[in-house]
Amino acid sequence: MTDPLPHEKGFHVSWDQLHRDSRNLALRLDAIAPEGGWRAVVAITRGGMAPAMIVARELDIRTVDTISVKSYDHQTQSQAQVVKSPDMDLIGDGTGILVVDDLVDTGRTLKVVRALMPKAHIATVYGKPMGLSLVDTFVGEVAQDSWIYFPWDMALLYVAPYRGD
């Protein structure tokens, strides 16, 4: 057996697939919403912004904020640090708050978020095994050693066949 090519370890997500999976996430979140509904959505930037927008639209949540936690430099994960916090007067301890991200990988980012909003409900579209214990709701699981290529990372270009030409 030959070693896989770089793109064979990748999980490619199109805009259509991200939209479908984000709507699926919204359906799951609607079923478990607290009495009176979610008070706000907090998107983890940047990857969580598109899913959070879709979830907020589907659940008719008008209060949307962001938290920016930097834990990657291109494809290398580093120490997570908060770059921008949400309005903590609104968020409080996170009760009734829905935090949305595109992916949980190792969980470094979510540990930082959970420390700021311990009672928030954390939802991701996709999850890898190492970080899933930090997520309350997710849609799909991806292998830990796969790299997820989101639609904002991609361009429409010719793709050579897997083997040969």
Rank of each mutant, 00 (worst) to 15 (best):
V113M: 10
T124W: 04
R28N: 07
V139L: 08
K70E: 14
A155V: 13
D30Q: 14
V55L: 10
T124R: 02
L29I: 02
K119W: 01
Q79S: 12
R163W: 06
W147E: 07
G37D: 05
I44V: 15
P151I: 02
E8F: 08
I67V: 15
M130Q: 14
T109Y: 11
V135K: 05
M1H: 11
A143I: 01
A43G: 15
I44N: 04
P129S: 13
D145L: 07
V159G: 05
E141H: 02
G37H: 07
R108K: 14
G94Y: 03
V41Y: 03
I67Q: 06
S146Q: 15
S14K: 06
L110A: 08
P34R: 09
R23P: 00
R163I: 11
R39H: 01
T137L: 04
V99S: 05
V82H: 03
G107F: 13
D87G: 00
M154S: 13
A80H: 09
P151Q: 06
V142T: 05
A26D: 08
G131L: 07
V99H: 02
A40S: 04
V142E: 04
Q77T: 13
G10F: 12
M49E: 11
G140E: 14
K128N: 06
L29W: 03
M117P: 01
P161K: 12
D87M: 00
G47M: 09
M130A: 15
P118F: 08
I67T: 09
D21F: 04
S68N: 10
E8L: 10
H74M: 10
S68T: 13
S14Y: 08
K70C: 06
M53D: 12
P118N: 05
W15G: 04
H121G: 02
D65I: 00
A80C: 09
S78C: 08
D153P: 01
D16G: 10
R57T: 13
M154C: 14
R20W: 05
G96A: 03
L90N: 00
P51K: 12
L103E: 13
G140T: 09
A160R: 10
A43C: 13
G92Q: 02
P151W: 13
R163K: 13
K128G: 07
L110C: 08
R46K: 14
M53N: 12
V64D: 02
M49F: 15
V125I: 12
R39L: 00
V100N: 01
L29D: 01
M53V: 07
T109P: 02
Q77V: 12
T2R: 15
Q144K: 04
V42T: 06
M49W: 15
K119C: 10
G96Q: 01
R62L: 08
T95N: 11
R163T: 14
